[in-house]
Design a protein around this nucleic acid. Structure first.
Lengths: 333, 333
DNA sequence: GTCGATCATGTAATCGTTTCCATATAGTCC
DNA sequence: GGACTATATGGAAACGATTACATGATCGAC
């Protein structure tokens, strides 16, 4: 493959000059520039980004380590990250951590070796020593969606507290009293936050929370289904099931359907995390929507601020309740 | 950041030796290896992949240029590509072409500059000169899901012909005669193939295809909805609407629901492309499922064969009909 | 006509690895 | 004990760009 030397020879100039036209330096005459451009075209020259990166210590590449690209919420964030990065002239390398700390570490290591300019991580449950090292070493790191306690890393995430309060009020006004929550893992900041908000909101409305109405899943569909089944098997089953993410809501939905129960007549359903097809369900599912795209975009902006050593602040965006029909139709009060 | 030189100095050996332990060369004594490993640990040495790539002319990186990561079919392929690549020791750079040839070109150019070892492309409609250049230059290229006519590039894709014949038979046996097809763009190989298979299958069963029952969308939800609306406005609307991909099926579903029509009583619905939530709909949607994960995995295998200069062949996997309830319950014949 | 400024261009060092070749040491064989 | 081989290590040249510094030309001002 042709290199800068070949172009220089072909155009009858030095490599320095070729490099200058490559980088749009003003220090080169129009005439020479044209000669060089012609030579590049003739030789089908493609600049070697690897060599350039070695010299300039910048790869114009961002790493994104994500739980699972199949989860529509993550997919939407990934998409936005990609768009925003491209707009800023960066490409992004995606790593699926699959919620496994060791796989997350694999990607942190690999991407660091590839010398990405910055790293966006949706951290899995545990803080790993490797991540701590990164923080200490000052690698440009930004957490996305979730945070890790005790680490001084800027984070871009949504806060569902207000939306959960709204949801509980909505449910309450609909006349429901017994509401069960399929929570997320206690180890994830998002899981903790949602459980706490739910409990607070219930207490605030004077609704008691029975122990058997609160169980933690793992943010995957199967756990949602199993927990919903246990709720429904209770001597006094809940009137409402609120799932802590879209996949567990899906699992709960399956269980409800499998039992031939009607929503919201027999049991109401609500979900944290909205996904496009909730609105196509019958009835459409009431859900809390997170601004996935904006999270992705903002995360890139924050990360690029860090990369360029500008001051950086964490970002918290509100989630929002979207009332549809799966909890009931008319609010009474 | 510490480099190989620092490690060498710290361990009291030469850079060559450090490099050898880095690459697991057998030509280094156990004693020295330990000294070097200790030095690496002490200095928190992270190998510089950029420098290594420059020297070895290999980046252990694959590029994946895809229509839209938000489309669950593409997301599933991307996920599989990533898994398979990781298993082989590669990372994946993803580019969203968004069905725009110029954006596809942007990524081809960028990834080529970054010297990815191979490129997986889901080509957009038109063949661009840049892609032709790549083929001519012999860059390791594999097409995924779609092909481009007249280019000698291995492709990994699904063939829906048999499944479409099965679907038409299913519909026919259910007693339906008037079936309309929302086809994909004529410019995409998948669009063409599905239309042709549908027409063939209909003819084979002696069903006539009225012109007004065949209209091409762009594989996006909005076009599916608009075309479904036109079908339903016809003096004699179809008994069945078959959508050429999952997003257009979604659009059609919206239109049907908006009109308060019942599925399959008022109009039946079927979709090319299955997505997880079709089964949660009421009624569950009859669909043709493509082996997205296997396509992704096989594509990586084929691409790596090319990269390693082993012989390469295109792969065609069958799509499969999944009968659910959206076309009717009991087949008569 | 000389001086200095400005501009276009060239020379060569550099980035952090890998790897070819050379070299030193030890071990084996006759 | 000398010749040879095997083994462990080091020196230095790549890889393909960027860039600090040097150089020669042109030009205006005095």
């Amino acid at each position: 493959m042709a290199g800068i030397k070949d172009v220089a020879a072909h155009a009858g100039v030095s490599v320095a000059t070729v490099s200058r036209v490559l980088n749009d330096s003003p220090r080169v005459s129009e005439e020479t520039r044209e000669k060089v451009v012609a030579a590049m075209r003739a030789l089908r020259y493609t600049p070697n980004g690897v060599a350039r990166s070695l010299r300039t210590e910048a790869t114009r590449t961002l790493g994104l380590i994500i739980g699972d690209i199949l989860n529509p919420f993550f997919a939407a964030m990934a998409r936005a990250v990609e768009d925003e990065a491209r707009a800023a002239g960066y490409t992004v390398v995606i790593g699926n951590a699959d919620e496994r700390p060791e796989q997350q570490d694999h990607y942190v290591r690999t991407l660091l070796e590839q010398r990405v300019d910055g790293l966006l991580i949706c951290p899995t449950a545990e803080t790993t020593p490797l991540v701590e090292d990164c923080v200490r070493a000052g690698s440009p790191l930004v957490f996305l969606d979730r945070t890790l306690p005790g680490l001084d890393v800027p984070a871009v995430r949504a806060d569902g507290t207000a939306a959960i309060h709204d949801l509980v009020r909505h449910i309450h006004r609909l006349g429901h009293r017994r509401v069960a929550f399929i929570s997320g893992p206690e180890l994830l900041s998002t899981g903790r936050e949602r459980t706490r908000a739910f409990l607070d909101a219930m207490r605030e409305r004077g609704l008691d929370i029975r122990d058997e109405y609160l169980e933690a899943g793992d943010f995957q569909a199967a756990s949602g289904r199993a927990i919903a089944a246990r709720f429904l098997d209770l001597p006094e089953p809940p009137e409402v099931i609120f799932a802590g993410d879209n996949l567990m809501a899906l699992g709960a939905l399956d269980e409800i359907r499998a039992r031939g129960l009607r929503i919201p007549g027999d049991v109401a359903l609500a979900s944290f995390d909205d996904v496009a097809w909730f609105v196509h369900l019958d009835p459409p599912i009431t859900a809390i929507t997170q601004p996935a795209e904006e999270l992705g975009r903002r995360a890139v902006q924050v990360l690029l601020s860090r990369v360029e050593r500008r001051p950086v602040e964490s970002v918290v965006l509100p989630a929002r309740l979207v009332i549809r029909r799966s909890c009931g139709e008319t609010e009474t009060r």
